[in-house]
Computed example of a mutant assay.
Amino acid sequence: MEKQTKFLIDELKKLLNGGGAHVGFKDAVKDLPFESLGERPHGLPYSIWQLVSHIKIAQWDMLEFSKDGSHQSPAWPDDYWPKETAPSSEQEWEETLKAIDEDLQNFLALLDSADIYEAIPEGDGQSVLREALQIADHNAYHTAEIVVLRRLLGIWKS
């Protein structure tokens, strides 16, 4: 692997793990009171649970597409957002966080094994590089929303 590509992959991994310019996902969901996960403050259209579930579904979809361009994505937008405002149990919450982390780790491993520039077969010109940037952008956007909701609910650390 050439030096520039290795550098780019290393930077992508840092970005996907939460970057350095803002709070990462793990910090945004750390120590969340379970009873607050379904609250929608000030008329907002989503809860923390819905944002976290959406991150899980979208990241999984981008991972699967990156591995197999013939992957069938869920129907947009209905199947990307849970209808329930809160998880059914603490176990469901923990399993969702675990799935997000596992899918992220699988994507990070894919960065090491794939030609990040090559078009994904059966796609429309997307590459693993593009999907990495999309996951990072998407997760950062919704992570910021989680922090805002925590602030509005009075459960943020600062």
Results as ranks from 00 to 15, higher is better:
Glu90Pro: 04
Glu64Tyr: 06
Lys56Ala: 04
Asp124Glu: 15
Glu118Arg: 09
Asp68Thr: 11
Ala58Trp: 02
Trp93Thr: 01
Ala58Met: 07
Ala99Glu: 10
His71Gln: 14
Leu51Tyr: 01
Glu102Phe: 05
Gly69Ser: 11
Asp101Trp: 12
Gln105Leu: 12
Leu63Pro: 04
Glu118Cys: 07
Pro87Phe: 03
Asp78Val: 12
Gln91Gly: 15
Glu118Gly: 08
Glu64Ser: 12
Glu95Ile: 04
Leu63Met: 05
His71Asn: 05
Pro121Met: 09
Leu110Trp: 03
Pro82Phe: 00
Gly123Met: 05
Ser53Asp: 09
Leu111Ala: 09
Ala119Val: 12
Pro74Lys: 09
Ser89Val: 10
Glu64Ile: 07
Gln59Thr: 07
Asp79Met: 08
Glu90Val: 04
Leu63Ile: 11
Trp81Ala: 03
Ser88Arg: 10
Ala109Met: 04
Leu104Arg: 03
Leu104Met: 14
Asn106Gly: 12
Tyr80Trp: 10
Val52Ser: 00
Leu110Ser: 06
Asn106Ala: 15
Ala114Ser: 10
Glu94His: 02
Ser89His: 03
Gln59Ile: 07
Ser89Phe: 01
Ser88Cys: 00
Gln91Asp: 15
Gly69Cys: 08
Ser89Arg: 02
Asp78Met: 09
Glu92Gln: 11
Asp79Ser: 11
Trp93Cys: 06
Pro74Gly: 13
Glu122Ser: 15
Asp78Asn: 11
Trp60Phe: 10
Ala114His: 06
Val52Gly: 00
Ala99Cys: 06
Leu63Ser: 01
Glu122Pro: 06
Ile120Lys: 02
Asp115Ala: 01
Asp68Leu: 09
